[in-house]
């Protein structure tokens, strides 16, 4: 399905990203840690007032708040930071004319696209893991908040939301590849997605893994990525190269 050249392009994308987005990579981790710190500061202040009433288990509440913000990191980091990596590479190659000889070799558009998507996802996922580790250490040692990392939280943070984010990333890439000025839509999509995930997590707090949710999310994401791959391969080459 991918066509030849995918592995070569994947290696090339990783090399380029490694050399070009280090500062953005560090910034995204810093940003995720800062947001966690900022939110927890506010929770601590808010709960301190309630603690005087003496009716609530404040450490327990803070632990839950800390965990839900951790679970929310995936959609933000993968859709925003991943999108930056992917579009930067695509726009650079489009404007420098590098896409023309590349596509002129007969390589499938899908292979070029998938290499960029995979790289963007993997790098943003690594950034997510690092940010999560720092945040967990910060919560335990700096804020001294006891958190109970459940299996559900792990599956949700490390699998469900990243897979859904990958699907959103693939939709964003189709927008960038097919529209001349996709900036507004491309900024709106991850924002709406992040708000939806947040709303879902707040509205339906869970403590155990719901297999049906897992299956639905993975199936919808796989179908979305598959559809995007078909659309990308059918896109007019002229449109792909247009600045």
């Amino acid at each position: 399905m991918v066509g030849s050249g995918f592995k070569v392009l994947l290696t090339k994308e990783f090399k380029e990203v490694k050399r070009s987005v280090l500062s953005s990579f560090l910034y995204s981790i810093f940003y995720a840690v800062f947001i966690e710190w900022f939110i927890l500061q506010n929770y601590i202040k808010a709960y301190a007032k309630l603690a005087n009433a003496g009716t609530l288990d404040i450490p327990e509440l803070l632990g839950q708040a800390a965990l839900s913000t951790l679970m929310f990191a995936g959609p933000i980091m993968i859709t925003f930071f991943g999108n930056i990596i992917m579009t930067r590479s695509f726009i650079r190659e489009r404007s420098s004319g590098a896409l023309i000889p590349l596509l002129g070799t007969g390589i499938k558009q899908r292979a070029v696209w998938l290499a960029k998507l995979t790289t963007a996802f993997c790098i943003s996922y690594i950034a997510l893991i690092i940010a999560l580790l720092i945040n967990v250490l910060m919560i335990i040692f700096h804020f001294k908040i006891p958190i109970r990392v459940s299996f559900y939280a792990l599956v949700s943070t490390l699998l469900i939301t990243p897979v859904a984010s990958l699907a959103v990333l693939s939709i964003l890439s189709v927008l960038y590849w097919s529209l001349k000025s996709p900036q507004f839509i491309a900024a709106t999509v991850p924002t709406l997605f992040s708000i939806s995930i947040w709303t879902y997590l707040v509205a339906k707090p869970r403590t155990v893994v719901d297999i049906s949710v897992l299956v639905i999310v993975i199936s919808i994401s796989a179908i979305t990525i598959f559809m995007c791959a078909i659309i990308i391969n059918r896109l007019n080459r002229k449109r792909l190269m247009a600045i």
Partner: peptide
Amino acid sequence: NLSQIGPKIGMMLEQPGLFSFL
């Protein structure tokens, strides 16, 4: 049939079309 004829063609275009970070 670009996938069949592409490998038989070499091109040097107006823009060099290089990958900047390689």
